[in-house]
């Protein structure tokens, strides 16, 4: 490990420690916001692990998330909670592998549509199944508090960063960078591109399902429209791209401001969240195509160029 890596590691551990102290403030508002930020950090960072290098835009987050929520909702009375969280992760990875096998050989448009429809498909099927069985939703009654959920999410975030860092140093990560640059070259350099993409897509699938499982106790009452809300998928895409999907810490830079903005807009102008989503997409495409990270890089380069001139 280089000195810079050790410094980053220490800083990350410190940040994590500080983040873990939040529930001690005892403020419900801050905890709620912190919970949202932690949740979206986990989702957006794992999303960017796959979509950053491959440029595939996945809108399946809600599908995986809902899968995790329902795993807990259906099983918490029979199985211990922890095993359900693990089970959710496995189910998420399996679903992601299936989706990946079906679509990742094809072009990006197919993938977007497939993932956009996936959450809707699962939602319709579950709604239908519930109608058949005569119940509308599920009660998840546990003694897990918001503090616990928050700590779990912070722990999961640490895990996601660790996994992301390890992937970045691995052959798989290197293969994905090559695929992102030129898939044809990747294939002719000996990379099984489909396998690499499917393997990596399983990471956000598993993480989103685990996140859903962790949040299930917070909702108390879960129904398809809540667990599979397509809005979640879009929010994750925006936050990750706004921050910058090219770096491991990029999404975090997008998550914090956007989560706060979202909170503010949806509490003051609840009808204008759609407009906010739309404008955010347009900002990403036309103003910040490389996210805040790209902006920071440009500024840094300018500064160092200026130094170079003098």
């Amino acid at each position: 490990m280089t000195a810079a890596e050790i410094r980053t590691l220490i800083l990350a551990a410190l940040a994590l420690g500080v983040a873990a102290l939040l529930p001690l403030t005892g403020s419900g508002y801050w905890l709620g916001l912190g919970l949202n930020i932690a949740m979206f950090t986990v989702l957006a960072t794992s999303w960017a692990l796959f979509s950053g290098p491959t440029h595939y835009i996945s809108l399946a987050t809600a599908a995986f998330f809902g899968l995790g929520t329902y795993t807990v909702g259906l099983g918490f009375e029979t199985l211990p909670y922890w095993s359900l969280v693990a089970l959710a992760g496995i189910l998420g990875a399996v679903l992601a592998a299936l989706v990946g096998l079906a679509t990742l050989r094809l072009s990006g448009v197919y993938f977007v549509i497939f993932t956009l429809g996936l959450a809707e498909l699962v939602r319709q099927v579950i709604t239908w199944a519930q109608n058949m069985s005569g119940q509308k939703g599920l009660y998840v009654l546990t003694d897990i508090t918001e503090d616990h959920i928050y700590w779990q999410l912070v722990g999961l975030a640490a895990l996601v960063y660790l996994v992301g860092w390890l992937i970045g140093r691995s052959r798989l990560g290197f293969a994905l960078r090559i695929i992102g640059d030129d898939e044809e070259v990747a294939r002719h350099s000996g990379i099984d591109t489909a396998r690499a993409k499917v393997l990596l897509f399983m990471v956000p699938g598993a993480v989103a399902a685990i996140t859903g499982a962790m949040l299930a106790p917070r909702y108390v009452y879960i129904e398809p429209a809540l667990a599979f809300t397509p809005m979640l998928s879009f929010q994750v895409v925006i936050m990750a791209l706004l921050g910058g999907a090219g770096r491991l810490w990029g999404p975090l830079v997008g998550v914090i401001p956007f989560a706060i903005l979202w909170e503010t807009i949806s509490s003051t102008f609840p009808n204008q969240t759609m407009l906010l989503l739309g404008v955010s997409f347009l900002v990403i495409v036309y103003v910040l195509p490389k996210g805040f990270v790209g902006l920071i890089d440009t500024v840094r380069r300018r500064l160092s160029n200026r130094e170079g001139w003098t």
Binding site: G108, M274, G278, V279, F281, I284, V285, P289
Partner: peptide, 19 residues
């Protein structure tokens, strides 16, 4: 690149229109 740009831009447009 055009594909992903146009997907994001027209998503944006779509949400703005809904809004």
């Amino acid at each position: 690149q055009l594909e992903s740009d146009s997907i994001l831009a027209t998503f944006g447009l779509s949400f703005v229109a809904v809004g």
